[in-house]
């Protein structure tokens, strides 16, 4: 068998041979019937190579990995971005440390304060609602804007309410009695006024 032809045969089988080389191989196959056996062997080999089962390629996971590598690559080539990334990373680390410290502090505080709560039964939180000076109920047809105008005019603030019975608890920095008188004078809006103890 001609060695040249034998060397070309695999590429005739995979269909990449062209022109004179292809013609040469085809003529050789006609002239030498034993080449048909070689041809068959190579065809089977090609089929087997193509049929080989290979485990799955990385696919989309591989793409994610590549995109991550690309980000790192970009950072390396951009010193400013790299510096920013390092700073952001440092800041993240700092905030993480602060958050951990805050959690630890909260735990310690809970351990120390909780027993006191249990002993005292009730505790009034600091900064609770300020004490009311006056209790008042308004006429059913009094509108929100009427009430607002009256209270602003008398420098009164709602500190609680309305309750289920419609009672509002008010406070004032001015004279309470004067405020009570002013409220009572507005019978069109105010149904009842009472000074708190």
């Amino acid at each position: 068998m001609n060695k040249d032809i034998m060397e070309l045969l695999p590429f005739y089988v995979n269909g990449t041979l062209e022109g004179k080389e292809k013609d040469k191989v085809e003529q050789a196959i006609i002239d030498d019937p034993s080449l048909k056996g070689e041809l068959h062997f190579l065809e089977r080999m090609r089929e087997e190579v193509k049929a080989q089962e290979v485990e799955n390629s990385p696919g989309e996971l591989g793409l994610k990995r590549l995109q991550k590598s690309l980000e790192q690559e970009k950072l390396k080539s951009d010193p400013i971005a790299l510096a920013r990334s390092k700073i952001a990373s440092e800041q993240n680390r700092t905030w993480r440390a602060i958050a951990v410290a805050a959690c630890v502090l909260l735990m310690i505080q809970t351990v120390i304060v909780a027993p006191h709560w249990l002993q005292n039964g009730t505790l009034v939180a600091a900064g609770g609602p300020s004490a009311a000076d006056i209790s008042v109920t308004f006429a059913p047809d009094a509108t929100e804007s009427n009430i607002r105008g009256l209270l602003l005019g008398l420098n009164l603030s709602i500190v609680e309410g309305p309750s289920a019975l419609g009672v509002y608890h008010l406070s004032t920095d001015d004279d309470i009695q004067q405020a009570v008188q002013a409220l009572k004078s507005r019978g069109d809006l105010v149904e009842s006024v009472q000074v708190e103890n």
Partner: peptide, 30 residues
């Protein structure tokens, strides 16, 4: 050659060797 169905010229470029070497390697592989 058999999975990618490449011509010997292409293979020679990939594996960075002369075309005749590709043909010879294929011959010996067979």
């Amino acid at each position: 050659a058999f999975f990618e169905d490449m011509a010997y010229g292409e293979i020679a470029k990939i594996v960075d060797c002369p075309e005749n070497t590709v043909k010879t390697r294929m011959f010996h592989a067979k």
